[in-house]
Design a protein around this nucleic acid. Structure first.
Length: 144
DNA sequence: GCCAACGTTGGC
DNA sequence: GCCAACGTTGGC
């Protein structure tokens, strides 16, 4: 079971909007980066990831679940671009900021730190657990 | 608002 | 197939 991280600018699509979708799920559309697309192709239904607010907030604010595996992105012409569907699973009781992630030695190898531009990225199991702990969320309640 | 890092495009 | 120019992302 793999873990992931999804970035969104809250001005475009926020955690509150994602939560409002409930279990209906939300197409994670608009991704036009091959690396990010390839990660989405590798995702399996039921896998978990973090929802990260970029630009404003710059923090992990919640946990999402892959509700549907990769399918053509309906906002793209043709079928070259794909996306998964995501649904909100849990709030991060206290958002874990980029600043605190950078200050934590155990998280220094995160893609979030080394390649700040990749909008969909894998997260190690130990990293996922650590961030849950830092955010006041019981890892066992969200890790599969 | 600036700019560094990165990815993509297009001329050669 | 190289690489310069350009556009975009996202931290600061």
């Amino acid at each position: 079971m793999a873990y992931w991280l999804f970035k969104s600018e809250p001005g475009k699509w926020s955690w509150n909007q994602q939560k409002a979708k409930g279990e209906a799920g939300q197409e994670w559309d608009g991704v036009r980066n091959y690396q990010a697309r390839n990660f989405m192709r590798a995702m399996k239904t039921g896998e978990r990831g973090f929802f990260y607010h970029s630009n404003e907030g710059k923090a992990v604010v919640g946990v999402v679940e892959v509700a549907a595996e990769a399918h053509p992105d309906s906002t793209a012409p043709g079928t070259a671009w794909e996306c998964v569907d995501l649904m909100a699973v849990a709030d991060m009781p206290s958002p874990v900021t980029l600043e605190t992630i950078k200050a934590e030695p155990a998280l220094k190898d995160m893609v979030l730190v080394s390649n700040s531009r990749l909008s969909v990225q894998p997260v190690g199991e130990a990293e996922f657990r650590r961030i849950c702990e830092m955010g006041g969320l019981d890892p066992a309640s969200v890790m599969v």
